[in-house]
Design a protein around this nucleic acid. Sequence first.
DNA 1: CGAGGCCTTGACCGCGGTCAATGCCCGTGG
DNA 2: CCACGGGCATTGACCGCGGTCAAGGCCTCG
Lengths: 188, 188
Amino acid sequence: MTNKLKTVLQTLADFDERELDQIVNLFKPKSVKKNSILLHEGNISREFYYIHTGGLRTFFISKNGQEKTRYVMLDNHIGTALKSFISQKPSIEFVEAIDDTELLAISHQDFYHLNEEIHSWKNFYQNILERAYSFQNRKIEELVTLTAKQRYEQLLQENPVFIQKLSNKVLASYLDMREETLSRLKSQ
Amino acid sequence: MTNKLKTVLQTLADFDERELDQIVNLFKPKSVKKNSILLHEGNISREFYYIHTGGLRTFFISKNGQEKTRYVMLDNHIGTALKSFISQKPSIEFVEAIDDTELLAISHQDFYHLNEEIHSWKNFYQNILERAYSFQNRKIEELVTLTAKQRYEQLLQENPVFIQKLSNKVLASYLDMREETLSRLKSQ
DNA sequence: CGAGGCCTTGACCGCGGTCAATGCCCGTGG
DNA sequence: CCACGGGCATTGACCGCGGTCAAGGCCTCG
């Protein structure tokens, strides 16, 4: 489990073996059931996750009570409710397991500790931020230029695993459309 | 002009006086006319800007030929076509002066140089990325939860200077609606 | 002064949201 | 093991927000 994590970390920054050991020791294993909430709206995001198996999603609830899924992490991916993790202010997002999930978590404290101790970790974090920024940049592009159908078809092409693994309810909220609309699109 | 820049930099990271001098010396003054293009789609974003007077915007052009404004910088603000600046890959965004503009620009080369030379500059850049991320996060929230009218009213409340300084054409594309819709909203 | 861009206003319409009814699957307890 | 209940998916009918197209007026700048 920690070996896979090391591999992932290495793709994002240049760590030596001693640093990697120091880092992965700070990631604690955790096992959560499907539908359990790891972070509740209003609380502060204090953990950063690596997903071994299963999956998490972050979402928030709009004024009119609808869930809006922002980010999905499946096997071998990393992330958290980043805005609150960055600012250490109360989150508007929930973090929820979309499946029975085995993961590794590092605390915010340890995360920022590493930021001061390990030079490459700053690069790692910079890289995370750059990717998160670019990801959202793309999402905005899609929201303002594509129709519901085009967004669905693009995901189908680029990330079909999402369509297999997510419930229609979650998938629809991720694609920013209603369940009914997604259902109609799926049946062509 | 460089004094104002120093003030802005200091709000984003903890520089000492010598560092500040070293940094601002790398910012070169530039004067651009309204409607001139500082970065063309397809080119690589190689400068990071501080706006002294006037303003810039970044926008891209969608498949069906419409301009979509992502980010606006007015007096005393900083920014650039960030995605391309980060990746040093061709930009899908333009950078355009929305007014006659006096600005200071630092090259990507010098920017990343500072990232290695000055410890606090890494914090500065981290801060920029965190803010850019949070800004976009908010924008996505607004796009998926608010109506055109609500987006306009929110901007009116939180950033009325945008509504005064931007043309309807640019303002509409910033708010992700057509000029006609914005016009109807303004007349209540 | 003329031309071209920008803004406004009107008429129309289609995408996708809303509401409602029904079916289906699955976990839970008797 | 079956009966029941609740959540999820599907389908239909309806409708409203905001996009599209078009025409006309106004302002700016060469």
